[in-house]
């Protein structure tokens, strides 16, 4: 019952937060110079004041700010994110077409970074002065300091152009014929480089954090107790130390959700990955306000849901958090 109450409180706060994000996004968009009327006028090859005013009136852009905000919120609650005049289709369906590709990339990259990062962290924590540990530190520093788009381009040059292991761009080969497995394998081949690129920054964070966290738990009293029980090295490290060391890693994963999504914009652009990132990039260039707002809304939604999930997983790992707000 307590757990249920905690969950409902969490969800209530999440909804409030989402609302705040919506208001903030809309306000900022409104404050920025230029609107869709400019873009339409531009594509028509220029327009006079009268035509501009007509366009603004047609799309409700001449109404007071508060009215525009109100009608925007009203529509979002009904999951109507407006109509993209640039792409000529409803924003919701536009985003839903692109969302799976981004989710696939973001989750795979997070999973890759987390698993490899924790494994590297644990290995180097057990021999903090070993060669492998120094190697992990070096890789982490490199991965963290190199800009994602640069890493992406280097990987492209190395593994798509010089050694032609992986495709250069896109998510699938449209000319490919074959059943489900052939298609899946094709998507996986397309995913390898973007996943490594997007994962590289986070890999560094995870490996450093799990190394530090693991070294702390390995020196703790309960690990000494586990050794005094005569348990094997494996049980001591993986059962007793690792489960305790995971909490900060999971917390970081939740915080990183937002960063992964912003990183996805760059990576998707480099690899022409047909996800929200490329959509965001194109619609910003086109000043396609409804689409940008829609993408912001979805990213906020993803971050908030990601945080709720993190919270939930943390409670599974650490019994001390059960039933606490």
């Amino acid at each position: 019952m307590n757990a249920l109450r905690v969950t409902t409180t969490r969800i209530f706060y999440a909804v409030l937060l989402l609302l705040a994000v919506l208001v903030l996004n809309f306000t900022m968009m409104h404050l920025a110079p230029g609107d869709v009327a400019d873009t339409i006028a531009q594509s028509m090859g220029g327009a006079d004041e009268e035509t501009m005013a007509q366009i603004r009136a047609d799309y409700g852009l001449d109404k007071p700010f508060i009215v525009q905000l109100g009608s925007y919120l009203g529509r979002v609650i009904r999951f109507d994110l407006g109509y993209s005049f640039y792409y000529n289709q409803p924003v919701t369906s536009l985003i839903l077409q692109r969302l799976p590709a981004t989710l696939l990339l973001v989750f795979t990259a997070q999973l890759f970074a987390m698993i490899v990062g924790v494994v590297l962290g644990v290995i180097s924590a057990r021999r903090p002065n070993g060669i492998l540990s120094h190697f992990v530190t070096f890789i982490s520093l490199f991965g963290y300091s190199a800009p994602v788009f640069w890493t992406g381009i280097l990987l492209l040059i190395a593994f798509s152009l010089k050694i032609q292991w992986f495709p250069v761009a896109g998510m699938r080969d449209v000319t490919l014929e074959g059943g489900f497995w052939v298609q899946t394998l094709d998507i996986i081949r397309h995913m390898v480089l973007p996943t490594i690129t997007l994962g590289s920054i986070f890999l560094a964070l995870y490996s450093r954090l799990s190394r530090a966290s693991m070294m702390e738990t390995l020196g703790s009293d309960y690990v000494r107790t586990a050794k005094a029980k005569g348990l094997t090295e494996r049980e001591v490290v993986y059962k007793h130390a690792l489960k305790n060391a995971l909490s900060p890693v999971i917390t970081l994963a939740g915080l990183q959700f937002s960063a992964v999504i912003s990183g996805a914009v760059l990576v998707e652009t480099v690899f022409a990955w047909p996800g929200l990132g490329t959509l965001a990039f194109q619609s910003i260039l086109a000043r396609d306000t409804p689409t940008i707002l829609g993408i912001l809304f979805f990213s906020a939604l993803m971050v908030i849901v990601g945080n709720l999930l993190t919270d939930f997983v943390l409670r599974l790992v650490d019994p001390r958090l059960k039933g606490r707000a």
Binding site: S220, D221, Y222, R224, T225, A226, H240, K243, N244, V317, D318, P319, R320
Partner: peptide, 9 residues
Amino acid sequence: EPMTSLNPV
């Protein structure tokens, strides 16, 4: 240290 000698999880 009984407070820290048992594994919290």
